[in-house]
């Protein structure tokens, strides 16, 4: 049965860092990234190594921003889209921080925040890093076709974000606290078209929100922003329709896949996707806005399409999932200056 958890002790997000590639730099949030590599290579020869390096850069930046050393982290929880979570293990192996590799497809950043919050709330850990990444080229290679293969995309397809987000969480009160969690269930909505992952994930997001509002006692109006991970235009429209029919008001909804690119000019069809999509949007934009006191409360549901390339070829459906993390900024003690 679905449980909505409210941490018993304060757990806060203290610092974030976002890394991106050229397309992300050209997107609306480009200037907010902490680090951009316009070659998308991050100094490495292969795309898989580039993605791994993007995780290392993101975590290093987050540590530097908070003047922490790697020994200050009790654990790092990280994930990506590649087989065996290789970007995380290869990217973070030189840090010598106790490591948990996770897979939740594009829901990975929320899964990481969720697991870390429970670890911190449990009292055994004091400070944990969460990292999540994806890379357009490594994802194309694993899930679709060779990078240089000339194919056309349907309008419902999504563009895998090249980027990573890193978060550092502490078991102490802070400017942005995590005040709610919900582990999602796997939802098989019967969609088997990898060119329409928004439709595969939207029912999972809908169920997650419906359960959360039912069990947590909170209402959509309690949040300044209701944010999904990477439903894109198609999935967002479906989510809103499902919510409307169930009487849930999602007027304040936005989607990271719609925020990271300009769909009108960047040829990304339905929007961005990937473990790096909502990780980078949260780390570059949403959380900094909360740190600055511009946004008070965010209900973040990262959505994931738990598919494998072989399962789809075997005719199986694409299962969706959505994990929820509820974030609240401490507006009273906020002395940060408001950004324009």
């Amino acid at each position: 049965m679905v449980r909505t958890v409210r941490p018993e002790h304060p757990v806060s997000v203290t610092v974030t860092a976002a890394v991106g590639g050229k397309k992300e730099w050209n997107g609306p949030l480009g200037a907010r990234f902490d680090y951009i590599d316009e070659s998308d290579r991050f100094g490495k020869k292969t795309w898989e190594q580039s993605e791994a390096e993007s995780q290392a850069i993101a975590l290093r930046l987050a540590l530097n921003k908070s003047s922490l050393r790697e020994t200050d982290l009790d654990a790092v929880v990280a994930g990506d889209l590649l087989n065996q979570c290789s970007s995380s293990s290869y990217g973070l192996m030189n840090f010598r921080i106790p490591f948990l590799g996770i897979f939740g497809a594009c829901s990975t950043p929320a899964e990481g925040l969720l697991i870390s919050t429970l670890m911190l709330d449990g009292g055994h850990y004091r400070r944990i890093g969460v990292v999540s990444s994806s890379h357009f080229c490594s994802a194309e290679r694993q899930f679709r076709a060779p990078v240089e293969y000339g194919g056309q995309r349907p309008p419902t397809a999504q563009w895998t974000v090249t980027g990573a987000g890193a978060f550092i969480l502490e078991n102490a009160p802070g400017r942005v606290q995590i005040d709610g969690l919900q582990i999602g269930r796997i939802v098989d909505a019967g969609i088997d078209d990898p060119g329409n992952m928004g439709a595969a994930m939207a029912p999972a997001a809908f169920e997650a929100f419906r359960d959360f509002f039912e069990f947590s006692g909170k209402k959509p109006a309690d949040y300044d922003l209701i944010l999904t991970g990477d439903l894109g235009a198609e999935g967002s429209a479906i989510l809103k329709e499902l919510a409307l029919r169930a009487g849930i008001d999602l007027k304040r909804h936005n989607d990271c896949g719609l925020m990271i690119y300009d769909r009108a000019t960047q040829d990304v069809q339905s929007g961005g996707s990937g473990c790096g999509c909502s990780a980078a949007v949260m780390a570059s934009y949403i959380l900094p806005q909360m740190f600055e006191g511009n946004v008070g409360s965010v209900l973040y549901a990262a959505t994931g399409a738990l598919m494998s390339a072989d399962a789809v070829k075997q005719g199986l459906c694409i299962p969706g999932i959505a994990h929820i993390v509820s974030l609240k900024a401490d507006m009273k003690n906020n002395r940060g200056e408001r950004a324009q």
């Binding site: 909505a189 969609i191 029912p203 809908f206 419906r210 499902l242 029919r245 169930a246 459906c317």
Partner: peptide, 10 residues
């Protein structure tokens, strides 16, 4: 809405 029916949703 407990179970979103697969065929109709597809």
């Amino acid at each position: 809405q407990k179970d979103i029916k697969k065929t109709t949703y597809k």
